[in-house]
Amino acid sequence: MIGYVLEVAQAALALVLAPGLVGLVRWMKARLQNRRGAPAWQPYRELGKLFRKEVVVSSNASWLFRAAPFVVFASTVAVTFLVPILAVPLPFDGVGDLLVVVYLLLLGTFFLSLAGLDPGSPFGGMGASREMTVAALAEPTVALAIFALALSAGSTNLGQIVARTMTAPGAALSPGHLLAFAALFIVTLAETGRLPIDNPATHLELTMIHEAMILEYSGRYLALIEWAAAVKLLIFFSLLGNLFVPWGVSMALTPGTLVVAVASLLAKFVVLAGAVAVLETRIAKLRLFRVPELLSASFVLALLAVTSSFLLR
């Protein structure tokens, strides 16, 4: 019973924390640009405002345009039930493994891209085309990183991976793990639309990927999509944080360990957010046709990760 409660609590925590995480990255970036910046809780205000605004829908759009935000949001939230954020093992662990997580996120991307094409705006089409390109090219890296993790843990189920790494701490420092971490970090940047693949702060339509797709959205639809994007960032951060450095995740499900879990989760988030912020300050956006090169580099990393964990088993 406590497992189910925790499961819901974990999803709720993800939903609540996600906008703050985005705000944290933004705030850190502002400080690195020597600006005062908006506080980390600014995204909550923005979401709140969007939920209270009217929706304007293109006259060309069909039901799909109106349904897509809900599909995106639901599929992303569904993932939060499967990812180990606070504790393992949880009852829904067997419902979906890491492959399910990846394909659920692809489901959201698929519908968002279709929604980008729906109003017939050239920007939407451009965004959809680019988003699908990046998503497709990131896919092999993700699969291989999963493979590398699964090899040492003996399972693709997330709870298992976490539990296995905890019991055999040496695995966390194995070359396979480290390489897979690097590969997955690059994929995280690609999938969540961060620099150098996509610029979350751009205002120029021609350089956009994710933004271009959602140019037509407004009001509560936009809020759902933005929120889902924030949750996606949180999911990837938790994967990076908890799969590779599982310490802190509660296994005993007692109140004490849960408090530790929350604290360590926050610490991991701060570190990862800091890394992303520093990275985004340091590097410029890649040209779109350079992105595949970066992704193939991550692919090679992942392949090395798998072969090394294969051979070093």
Partner: peptide, 20 residues
Amino acid sequence: PIAVAMLALTSGLAAACFVK
């Protein structure tokens, strides 16, 4: 692993193709 990666790439590209 290469087969796994290619299968993953294939399904990603298939999704892109069917969005189109």
